[in-house]
Write a protein that binds this DNA or RNA. Structure first.
Lengths: 258, 258
DNA sequence: GTCTATAGGTGGATAGAC
DNA sequence: GTCTATCCACCTATAGAC
């Protein structure tokens, strides 16, 4: 850091502001000028520090995700060390994966709910460079947690576990995105705690904790649901998506092993 | 329709192309020129037929959502008529709400998986005009289904039901968006059936059906999960998100009433 | 590291002829 | 209803002085 003034300050200020604006408007709808204007830095400073708008977005995520996914690996390591070779309980695995994330929402120094919302909103962006970036950032963690779930649920087909991992990720990411129709239609729900835009109050901390309390049982219930009957028979769409599917034997799912 | 040529054809062609391109690139990253280029119509035609880019997006959704939400209301009416005053089973309600949507994915004339993906990707867009639009389109349906779920689960706090409705919407919308990290990280999952972009093959139909078979049990399992213990006590984040919560009495959740 | 100035391009929208 | 031509706001990125 050769010449003048703040340097590190400028970099961090740009990242903080970019994080908030990308969250509020999305990547495409946020211009460099909006960011530099709000951060009170020169337009050229962004390209000096990060190189391009794409690289800026990547850096906004990298500084949070490398911490998050590192913590997730540590949490899993710790659990597996405690278990001493035995399979983990699904609830432990979910707690390590989703709980670690949701706790970021309570910590402003880790981005708080601003980052959580940004993450939820960005995970469904179609832009190629974003998906490629996320794939790299998540590869190791997803792999480790997938294997842990396979071991925890040995009687559930692996493909089924992967599907349900999708669904769990979706339930969480949509919930933290906080953009869904229910928020506007009904007063009830996520909307009654945090303001719409980027309000960083004490309410956000409460929201993160409450969200965790609500979400975790839902995810666990979904993960442990009876397996579907896979019938590729009729052309008529199956009308019985009831709980009539194969019940997984109790020892594996409903009793001890939860 | 006064003067010349196709008229209706042009309108529909623009909508079809816009639907696909908005799905592939997102709203902001899709330009009017991309749309008119692919649809082989003049740039001015879009503004003539729809007035603006925002209005075009609204119309892309309106023609599908008015059908979808109409069907959802009909399905619920039918179920309630059959039940003759009794409360519906949660599985019936979910089937009517989510099954109706997922069946659109099997029908190319209703947009097929292209529309489903677009919907999943757009539900988390932060743009104000989009959220306002969705709120209006969904208001009636959400309200009716919320009440049906309240009646179906009289022992579950209404706030809890609304939260779980959020989570279910999220799991589904994320799954149909088909943009998540798992797709890229692992070969397993949603990615092994349909091509990434906008391929409209027979594979998409199979994908929609398979998705429904997998998703429905997951949602039902989450909806019927044991209630969380709501403890606003310690500052230490609760480490026991286990299934250790209050068990809802069997008659309401686990037995008949599924 | 910061700044001004600007290149070089693309965006949505419209006027007006046919 | 369709098309050409055009306006002009705004974008990302960079060159080059300090």
């Amino acid at each position: 850091m050769p010449d003048q003034k703040s340097g590190q300050d400028t970099r961090e200020r740009i990242l903080d502001i970019a994080e908030r604006l990308f969250m509020e408007n999305g990547y495409e709808a946020t211009s460099m000028r909006m960011i530099t204007g709000a951060a009170e830095v020169n337009l050229a400073a962004v390209n000096y520090h990060f190189g391009s708008k794409e690289a800026l977005l990547r850096e906004v995520f990298r500084r949070r995700l490398s911490w998050l996914n590192g913590e997730r690996l540590v949490a899993l390591d710790k659990l597996e060390a405690q278990a001493g070779g035995a399979a983990l309980k699904p609830s432990q695995i979910l707690e390590a994966f989703f709980g670690t994330l949701l706790r970021m929402g309570e910590d402003e120094s880790l981005g708080g709910m601003t980052f959580l919302r940004l993450l939820g909103r960005t995970l469904t962006e179609p832009a190629e460079f974003i998906r490629t970036f996320f794939a790299g950032e998540y590869a190791q963690v997803i792999d480790r947690y997938k294997l842990a779930l396979f071991r925890a649920l040995p009687d559930v087909p692996k493909a089924e576990i992967v599907w349900r991992l999708h669904f769990m990720l979706g339930a969480m990411s949509y919930a933290i995105a906080g953009t869904d129709v229910l928020q506007v239609v009904t007063g009830c729900g996520l909307g009654d705690l945090a303001g719409e835009g980027g309000s960083d109050g004490a309410g956000d901390t409460a929201l993160a904790r409450r969200l965790a309390q609500r979400l975790m049982p839902f995810l666990l219930g979904g993960l442990r649901a009876p397996l579907p009957q896979l019938l590729d028979v009729a052309h008529k769409p199956a009308v019985t998506h009831d709980g009539a599917g194969v019940q997984i034997h109790d020892s594996g799912i409903n009793a001890q092993n939860q």
